[in-house]
């Protein structure tokens, strides 16, 4: 099958990458483990149609609210849907939302951050004010407010998360740019007659990228959790697609009746995915800014 051969070629590139990471010490391990976790979960979601034993949306696959058993290893929910299948297929929405929000965030936050800190002056002051105000808001509350305004849907969820996260990129980029601006190699570029946009794109941006990547991984993790939260309170997507967030909402209500398996397993998956990204972020951060200098 086409998929398994592409999988093989990806794996063959992956293994040397992982071994070289493992040799880089603890930071490398973090990145490697985080990477494996994320890839595993994403792969699982992509291969869901082939992996799930039952149709995750089909009601009354089994007796409703039955605890984990040999037939249904993760139990069934109120509508008799198989939880294992739902867990395997439920990541799609979250991953899409997280990915989209990170992309929107970077596309917006990075240029704004670069321009603001490089030009300085009034523009910088105004943008700082705006960004600090957004930053001061509790993220989830703001996301909820925006989601309420925009309505449901993957894109709208992504947008609301993105708006909340732009200030983080802005701050990180700004602090980096401010220090890089003073470096001799930027002065040297000015002295050779380079124009502002050249300096930004070839001298400043490449040196800021490591920080951007680190923020992006934390962004991913946060987006996943926020998406779960939004769905939790009903601002997610429609109910017929299997979604961890939805199961978390429903599962919470069922907890009081002793039905723990509907909330637990999707919950674990959300945590694992967020953790994978966080580990990568931590590892990359340690790798690029080692705490132990020789």
């Amino acid at each position: 099958m086409g998929d398994s051969s592409t999988k093989k070629s990806m794996l063959s590139r992956l293994v040397p990458l992982l071994t070289s990471l493992a040799r880089r010490g603890l930071a490398g391990w973090f990145i490697a483990i985080g990477l494996i976790m994320v890839i595993a979960i994403v792969a699982m979601t992509l291969l869901a149609p082939w992996l799930s034993p039952h149709n995750p949306s089909a009601i009354e696959t089994g007796p409703p609210l039955s605890p984990p058993s040999s037939q249904f290893p993760l139990g069934t929910n109120k509508m008799g849907q198989d939880m294992l299948s739902r867990v395997i297929s439920g990541g799609g929405i979250m991953i899409q939302v997280a990915l989209l929000s990170v992309v929107i965030c970077m596309a917006g936050g990075v240029p704004i951050g670069l321009l603001s800190s490089y030009s300085g002056g009034t523009l910088d002051r105004i943008l700082c004010l705006i960004m600090d105000s957004i930053y001061a808001f509790p993220g989830l509350v703001l996301a909820i407010a925006i989601a309420l305004m925009l309505g449901r849907g993957v894109v709208n969820m992504a947008l609301s998360i993105a708006v909340v996260y732009v200030p983080s990129y802005f701050r990180v980029i700004r602090s980096q740019v401010l220090s890089i601006k003073e470096m001799a190699y930027v002065e040297a570029a000015t002295a050779t007659g380079a124009k502002g946009h050249t300096i930004l794109s070839r001298y400043i941006l490449p040196n800021v990228i490591p920080s951007i990547v680190v923020v992006a991984t934390v962004n991913f993790a946060d987006a996943i959790l926020t998406a779960a939260g939004l769905t939790f309170i009903g601002l997610g997507v429609s109910v017929d697609i299997p979604d961890w967030g939805y199961d978390l909402t429903v599962g919470r209500g069922l907890l009081t009746t002793g039905v723990w398996w509907v909330i637990a397993f999707p919950g674990i998956m959300v945590v694992l995915l967020a953790l994978g990204f966080t580990l990568m972020g931590e590892g990359l951060s340690e790798l690029w800014n080692p705490r132990l200098e020789q």
Binding site: Y185, A189, N207
Partner: peptide, 30 residues
Amino acid sequence: RRLQIIFQDPYASLNPRMKIGQSVGHPLEI
């Protein structure tokens, strides 16, 4: 083009992300 400057700190005066060939050749491009 006709007035240039050399800085004190050799560790800070070159862009760490540019190869030597690129760094030295960049003024020609500019």
